[in-house]
């Protein structure tokens, strides 16, 4: 007779192996980029413009461009996403409309990033005549991160106990007062987590900004939201594939800055979530 415990040991070993197959490469990717990118990082690299066809110099305009784009995306997406989350968690009933909204959010989250790029091109750049600009790129990225912000904010709002709402209402507070003074303050960590994850996503995406904002090479900083801008992920793409003979150090350095930015955002989000889960008052 086969020994079921031996079968279990073998099976668990393979499950463990599969896990290693995911985790080890992730670790390797991070280690390689840090190891090879770190020597490139210097104050000059971070603060100088790219020079000599991007083969020397720094990545300052790309960093600034990414910060502008992400800021614009959040300014657009946070209010809409938060209000949408409030609608879903506090106002919507379990009906057909709500199901359609949920499906729309799921789809918005699933639309390929390059299709967002097409959409931004057609609507903002061409139809609304914003041109390839920070405005077009920010709006495109903003719509892309909307589902992240809605979903995480909604979860945060729904995790506030129903009893708090009842108490507030029973004291004669209106529905909006209850949301404003009781529900929202207690959902802030979750909303913050969602916002930070949204920032991380917007900072790392390339395809949506390809035709809506990204400049191949623009050695000065943008003056207005109607200017084109460089952006870190696109810059990494350009110097990896479009420009021959770029020093490997610069490529790794750029990859490291982008990765560090995105992972830092995610780390902050994870820490906030972890801390507040532990400190929850109810």
């Amino acid at each position: 007779m086969r020994n079921p415990y031996r079968a279990q040991r073998i099976a668990f070993f393979f499950l463990f192996l599969a896990t290693l197959l995911i985790v080890v490469p992730v670790g390797l990717i991070v280690v390689i980029i840090v190891q090879k990118g770190l020597p490139a990082i210097s104050w000059q690299f971070l603060s100088d413009i790219p020079r000599h066809g991007m083969r020397v110099g720094g990545i300052f305009p790309a960093i600034v461009g990414t910060i502008y784009l992400v800021t614009g995306a959040i300014i657009f997406a946070l209010p809409i996403g938060l209000l949408a989350a409030i609608y879903l968690s506090e106002y919507s009933k379990d009906n057909f409309l709500t199901r359609i909204i949920r499906l729309a959010i799921v789809n918005l989250a699933g639309v390929p990033s390059v299709v967002y790029g097409l959409f931004g091109l057609a609507l903002f750049v061409v139809f609304l005549k914003f041109g390839a600009s920070i405005l077009s790129g920010s709006l495109t990225l903003g719509i892309m991160i909307l589902p992240i912000i809605i979903t995480t904010s909604r979860e945060a709002l729904e995790s506030v106990p129903q009893s708090f709402r009842e108490v507030s209402l029973s004291l004669g507070a209106s529905k909006w007062q209850t949301i404003r003074h009781i529900v929202l303050p207690n959902a802030i960590p979750g909303i913050l987590t969602g916002t930070i994850l949204g920032i991380g996503r917007a900072a790392g995406e390339t395809a949506p900004i390809l035709f809506t904002v990204a400049a191949f090479y623009l050695p000065q900083l943008p003056d207005s939201i109607f200017d084109q801008a460089m952006a870190l992920p696109y810059h990494l793409y350009v110097i990896s594939t479009q420009v021959p003979n770029v020093d490997e150090k610069i490529r790794y350095g750029t990859a490291l800055v982008l990765l560090a930015l995105v992972l830092f955002m995610n780390l902050v989000a994870i820490i906030i979530r972890y801390k507040f889960r532990k400190r929850k008052k109810w």
């Binding site: 009842e166 507030s168 008052k281």
Partner: peptide, 28 residues
Amino acid sequence: RRKVGMVFALPLPLPLSIFDNVAYGIKM
């Protein structure tokens, strides 16, 4: 609801200070 107040089954303070728990309804 101001005229008809309610005390619930379990003690359900709001996640606020003692003072603000009492002041909350007044402020609303």
